[in-house]
Amino acid sequence: MATLGELERTVMDLLWGTQEAMTANTLRDALALAPEGTAEGKDLAVTTVLTVLSRLEKKGLVERERDTRPHRYRAVTSREDHTAELMHEVLVTAPDREAVLARFIGSVSESEARTLRRLLGSN
């Protein structure tokens, strides 16, 4: 049995992969087709898909088109935009950032990069 987290991922992958809005039914059928090597491929209840979708909606990743029945769901923004947002959080230097996540190397300024190259060159 796939966890909700894995299902969320697969659903987002499907929504990111298409430009169109999809109903829970369409999504369920697409999930049943077992995208390569994921934990899915088993038949899921539509209610499970709806649960996943409402979680994703709450997290602000998915929006619902309410003017049709059944409701259709689409990704709020592209995968690339979300990745950029995530990387922005990682790369931008903020006073508290170090406490949230520890980067292997912090931001390096131009002058610092020169010092580093000199140090490395002399070795």
Binding site: L91, V92, T93, V108, T115
Partner: peptide, 22 residues
């Protein structure tokens, strides 16, 4: 400018890389 940290922060973060390498 989103990636332009304020100068003080910048110094702190990058000096530590130089110290580490040294």
């Amino acid at each position: 400018g989103a990636l332009e940290p304020d100068p003080e922060q910048d110094d702190e973060a990058s000096l530590s890389t130089v110290h580490r390498l040294r």
